[in-house]
Measured scan of single mutants.
Amino acid sequence: SYYEILDVPRSASADDIKKAYRRKALQWHPDKNPDNKEFAEKKFKEVAEAYEVLSDKHKREIYDR
């Protein structure tokens, strides 16, 4: 789930989600993982997609249904 990707509970606040996104984006940024760039790019995209949905109140409500 998007919550698992960002490592936050379903009850996470918008601020918690933003902090988790920043932490995970740094962790999986391809430039930070030169030895495993392809895998890092995949993870980085997953993190971005999760944040896009969970950071938008309307999209998150739909996702949580």
Score class of each variant (00 low, 15 high):
residue 47 V to F: 05
residue 2 Y to S: 02
residue 16 D to K: 05
residue 11 S to A: 09
residue 25 A to W: 15
residue 24 K to P: 00
residue 26 L to T: 09
residue 55 S to C: 06
residue 35 D to H: 13
residue 3 Y to E: 01
residue 43 K to M: 15
residue 1 S to C: 14
residue 52 E to A: 14
residue 11 S to R: 07
residue 59 K to P: 02
residue 17 I to K: 02
residue 7 D to N: 10
residue 34 P to Q: 13
residue 22 R to E: 15
residue 57 K to H: 12
residue 13 S to P: 05
residue 35 D to T: 13
residue 63 Y to P: 02
residue 49 E to H: 10
residue 24 K to L: 15
residue 6 L to G: 00
residue 26 L to R: 10
residue 24 K to M: 14
residue 64 D to A: 02
residue 5 I to R: 05
residue 37 K to C: 06
residue 31 D to L: 11
residue 48 A to W: 14
residue 58 H to G: 12
residue 17 I to T: 00
residue 14 A to L: 15
residue 1 S to A: 08
residue 6 L to E: 00
residue 20 A to S: 05
residue 41 E to M: 14
residue 36 N to V: 06
residue 31 D to Q: 08
residue 7 D to F: 04
residue 56 D to S: 06
residue 47 V to H: 01
residue 22 R to W: 15
residue 4 E to S: 10
residue 45 K to I: 08
residue 3 Y to P: 00
residue 18 K to A: 13
residue 59 K to W: 06
residue 61 E to H: 08
residue 31 D to V: 05
residue 30 P to A: 07
residue 5 I to M: 06
residue 4 E to W: 09
residue 38 E to I: 12
residue 29 H to C: 10
residue 2 Y to D: 00
residue 46 E to L: 12
residue 50 A to Y: 00
residue 25 A to M: 14
residue 41 E to R: 12
residue 11 S to C: 15
residue 53 V to Y: 05
residue 60 R to P: 01
residue 59 K to H: 05
residue 37 K to M: 11
residue 4 E to H: 10
residue 3 Y to D: 00
residue 26 L to Y: 10
residue 54 L to Q: 00
residue 54 L to E: 00
residue 6 L to C: 01
residue 1 S to R: 11
residue 21 Y to H: 04
residue 19 K to S: 12
residue 21 Y to Q: 03
residue 21 Y to G: 03
residue 48 A to S: 13
residue 27 Q to F: 12
residue 3 Y to R: 01
residue 48 A to I: 15
residue 11 S to P: 03
residue 7 D to Y: 04
residue 30 P to F: 04
residue 64 D to L: 03
residue 51 Y to E: 01
residue 29 H to Y: 06
residue 44 F to I: 06
residue 65 R to G: 10
residue 15 D to S: 13
residue 8 V to G: 01
residue 49 E to F: 07
residue 57 K to C: 11
residue 35 D to Q: 12
residue 1 S to L: 13
residue 48 A to E: 14
residue 11 S to W: 15
residue 22 R to K: 15
residue 65 R to K: 14
residue 51 Y to N: 03
residue 32 K to L: 15
residue 57 K to A: 15
residue 22 R to S: 11
residue 59 K to F: 06
residue 55 S to D: 05
residue 40 A to W: 07
residue 7 D to I: 02
residue 41 E to G: 08
residue 14 A to E: 13
residue 27 Q to C: 07
residue 17 I to H: 00
residue 33 N to S: 06
residue 31 D to Y: 05
residue 21 Y to L: 04
residue 2 Y to H: 05
residue 43 K to I: 10
residue 32 K to A: 15
residue 17 I to N: 00
residue 22 R to N: 15
residue 50 A to T: 01
residue 22 R to G: 10
residue 23 R to Y: 09
residue 14 A to N: 11
residue 59 K to V: 04
residue 6 L to S: 00
residue 39 F to R: 06
residue 17 I to P: 01
residue 65 R to C: 11
residue 22 R to H: 15
residue 26 L to F: 10
residue 65 R to I: 11
residue 59 K to T: 07
residue 22 R to I: 15
residue 44 F to W: 14
residue 61 E to W: 09
residue 17 I to S: 00
residue 64 D to P: 02
residue 29 H to L: 09
residue 20 A to R: 01
residue 44 F to H: 06
residue 12 A to F: 02
residue 32 K to Y: 14
residue 45 K to Q: 12
residue 37 K to D: 05
residue 61 E to D: 12
residue 64 D to Y: 02
residue 34 P to A: 11
residue 52 E to T: 08
residue 43 K to E: 03
residue 42 K to Y: 12
residue 47 V to W: 02
residue 64 D to G: 02
residue 1 S to F: 09
residue 56 D to V: 05
residue 49 E to V: 11
residue 2 Y to P: 04
residue 5 I to V: 12
residue 11 S to M: 09
residue 37 K to A: 11
residue 17 I to A: 01
residue 15 D to K: 11
residue 46 E to Y: 05
residue 19 K to C: 12
residue 40 A to I: 04
residue 65 R to V: 08
residue 22 R to C: 14
residue 5 I to P: 00
residue 45 K to N: 10
residue 5 I to W: 11
residue 44 F to G: 05
residue 3 Y to S: 00
residue 40 A to H: 05
residue 36 N to P: 03
residue 29 H to G: 10
residue 63 Y to N: 02
residue 19 K to G: 07
residue 13 S to G: 07
residue 57 K to Q: 14
residue 19 K to R: 14
residue 45 K to D: 06
residue 32 K to N: 15
residue 54 L to Y: 00
residue 55 S to E: 04
residue 12 A to G: 04
residue 45 K to L: 12
residue 29 H to E: 09
residue 52 E to P: 01
residue 12 A to V: 04
residue 26 L to S: 13
residue 27 Q to G: 04
residue 15 D to V: 08
residue 16 D to S: 06
residue 61 E to C: 12
residue 26 L to A: 14
residue 17 I to F: 04
residue 57 K to L: 10
residue 45 K to G: 06
residue 46 E to R: 05
residue 64 D to M: 02
residue 16 D to W: 06
residue 15 D to P: 06
residue 55 S to I: 10
residue 4 E to M: 10
residue 11 S to T: 15
residue 8 V to H: 00
residue 61 E to S: 08
residue 31 D to H: 07
residue 38 E to D: 10
residue 46 E to M: 11
residue 29 H to A: 12
residue 23 R to F: 10
residue 8 V to I: 14
residue 46 E to C: 09
residue 6 L to Y: 01
residue 37 K to V: 12
residue 12 A to M: 01
residue 10 R to F: 13
residue 46 E to P: 02
residue 13 S to E: 05
residue 53 V to I: 13
residue 24 K to Q: 07
residue 16 D to G: 04
residue 17 I to C: 02
residue 34 P to H: 13
residue 38 E to C: 08
residue 63 Y to E: 02
residue 24 K to Y: 05
residue 20 A to I: 01
residue 3 Y to Q: 00
residue 33 N to V: 05
residue 65 R to L: 11
residue 7 D to M: 06
residue 53 V to F: 05
residue 54 L to F: 01
residue 9 P to K: 08
residue 30 P to S: 07
residue 22 R to Q: 15
residue 15 D to H: 11
residue 35 D to A: 13
residue 52 E to S: 13
residue 22 R to D: 15
residue 36 N to E: 07
residue 31 D to T: 10
residue 64 D to N: 04
residue 28 W to E: 02
residue 4 E to T: 10
residue 18 K to Y: 15
residue 42 K to E: 11
residue 27 Q to T: 06
residue 61 E to T: 06
residue 24 K to S: 05
residue 45 K to Y: 08
residue 31 D to K: 09
residue 1 S to G: 13
residue 35 D to M: 11
residue 2 Y to R: 02
residue 33 N to W: 15
residue 41 E to Y: 10
residue 9 P to V: 07
residue 14 A to I: 14
residue 34 P to R: 11
residue 6 L to Q: 00
residue 39 F to E: 13
residue 55 S to F: 07
residue 52 E to L: 12
residue 62 I to T: 08
residue 4 E to R: 09
residue 38 E to T: 10
residue 8 V to N: 00
residue 9 P to I: 06
residue 18 K to P: 00
residue 37 K to P: 12
residue 52 E to C: 12
residue 24 K to I: 07
residue 39 F to C: 09
residue 39 F to V: 11
residue 34 P to N: 08
residue 63 Y to T: 02
residue 21 Y to D: 00
residue 10 R to I: 12
residue 9 P to Q: 09
residue 3 Y to V: 00
residue 28 W to C: 04
residue 23 R to L: 14
residue 13 S to K: 06
residue 12 A to N: 01
residue 17 I to R: 00
residue 1 S to E: 07
residue 45 K to V: 07
residue 7 D to H: 07
residue 31 D to N: 09
residue 23 R to E: 15
residue 31 D to S: 13
residue 41 E to D: 10
residue 57 K to N: 12
residue 5 I to A: 06
residue 34 P to K: 13
residue 53 V to Q: 04
residue 30 P to N: 05
residue 41 E to S: 13
residue 18 K to N: 14
residue 20 A to V: 02
residue 25 A to L: 15
residue 3 Y to H: 01
residue 31 D to P: 04
residue 51 Y to L: 03
residue 12 A to D: 01
residue 5 I to F: 05
residue 7 D to P: 01
residue 61 E to M: 11
residue 19 K to D: 15
residue 38 E to P: 09
residue 1 S to N: 14
residue 9 P to A: 10
residue 49 E to P: 00
residue 50 A to R: 00
residue 24 K to W: 07
residue 50 A to K: 00
residue 50 A to V: 03
residue 58 H to A: 15
residue 2 Y to I: 03
residue 55 S to K: 09
residue 28 W to T: 03
residue 17 I to D: 00
residue 20 A to K: 02
residue 59 K to G: 04
residue 64 D to C: 03
residue 40 A to V: 05
residue 50 A to D: 01
residue 61 E to I: 08
residue 28 W to F: 09
residue 11 S to D: 15
residue 45 K to A: 13
residue 9 P to H: 09
residue 48 A to P: 00
residue 1 S to H: 09
residue 16 D to P: 01
residue 45 K to E: 07
residue 16 D to R: 07
residue 30 P to H: 05
residue 57 K to S: 12
residue 33 N to K: 04
residue 51 Y to I: 02
residue 24 K to R: 07
residue 43 K to T: 06
residue 7 D to C: 13
residue 55 S to Y: 07
residue 14 A to Q: 14
residue 18 K to T: 14
residue 60 R to I: 02
residue 16 D to L: 07
residue 65 R to D: 05
residue 9 P to C: 12
residue 18 K to H: 15
residue 35 D to N: 12
residue 40 A to M: 06
residue 60 R to V: 02
residue 55 S to N: 08
residue 53 V to K: 03
residue 29 H to T: 11
residue 65 R to Y: 08
residue 28 W to H: 04
residue 62 I to Q: 12
residue 39 F to P: 03
residue 43 K to A: 07
residue 44 F to Y: 13
residue 14 A to S: 13
residue 35 D to R: 08
residue 18 K to M: 14
residue 46 E to G: 04
residue 31 D to M: 09
residue 43 K to Y: 08
residue 62 I to D: 10
residue 15 D to A: 13
residue 20 A to N: 03
residue 63 Y to Q: 02
residue 62 I to E: 15
residue 51 Y to K: 01
residue 33 N to I: 04
residue 63 Y to D: 02
residue 30 P to Q: 06
residue 25 A to F: 15
residue 18 K to F: 14
residue 23 R to V: 15
residue 13 S to Q: 05
residue 27 Q to P: 03
residue 8 V to Y: 00
residue 13 S to M: 05
residue 40 A to L: 05
residue 6 L to H: 00
residue 13 S to Y: 03
residue 21 Y to T: 02
residue 27 Q to S: 06
residue 5 I to D: 03
residue 38 E to Y: 07
residue 25 A to R: 14
residue 59 K to D: 04
residue 48 A to Y: 12
residue 9 P to M: 07
residue 34 P to T: 10
residue 12 A to Q: 00
residue 16 D to Y: 04
residue 51 Y to A: 03
residue 63 Y to I: 03
residue 46 E to K: 07
residue 47 V to M: 07
residue 45 K to P: 01
residue 28 W to N: 03
residue 43 K to H: 07
